[in-house]
């Protein structure tokens, strides 16, 4: 049983973006696996760092694409990415600072659920808008 998996509903049709999204889902999954299998917050750190670094790279690739195609909503999209990073780091910090360790700490699950929900919502609502824009542009 997995915590989170990519599904066809999230398909953008842009190969590099879909690849990144699938990667991000599996990196969240691995963070969840780490959260469940250890009581040591330090042992979870590599999985979290990996996820955040890949997220950063994905955002950069996506924003470069949006600039290239002249997407009018690019600034807002960039802001959404910045807000996500801030919010995740704040939640992670709260989790790290809390005296409860690992899986006994509900903040870990809160963070994981936030990541999962944010990613799904962001792809379905925000990413699909620029996908539509790119498709329209290609038609003309």
């Amino acid at each position: 049983m997995t915590f989170v998996t990519w599904n066809e509903k999230l398909l953008t049709g842009i190969r590099e973006i879909d690849h990144d999204h699938k990667m991000l889902f599996d990196l969240i999954e691995q963070f969840h696996e780490a959260y469940m299998s250890t009581d040591s917050k330090a042992a979870m750190e590599p999985a979290f760092r990996m996820l955040m670094d890949y997220t950063e790279n994905h955002f950069r690739r996506e924003e470069e694409l949006l600039e290239k195609v002249g997407y009018p909503g690019q600034a807002g999209h960039h802001q959404d990415h910045e807000d996500l990073k801030d919010e995740v780091l704040a939640l992670y910090q709260r989790f790290q600072n809390d005296k409860l360790q690992g899986v006994e700490n509900d903040l870990g699950l809160e963070l994981l659920s936030f990541l999962k929900n944010w990613l799904e919502f962001h792809i379905l609502e925000d990413d699909m808008k620029y996908v539509e824009f790119i498709r329209d542009k290609e038609k003309h």
Binding site: H19, M23, D26, L27, Q30, P46, M50, Y54
Partner: peptide, 15 residues
């Protein structure tokens, strides 16, 4: 499943 190989082996490469 290319993504799966990447997402599982990237952390290992780092390690």
């Amino acid at each position: 499943k290319t993504y799966l190989v990447e997402s599982r082996l990237l952390p290992l490469a780092r390690q």
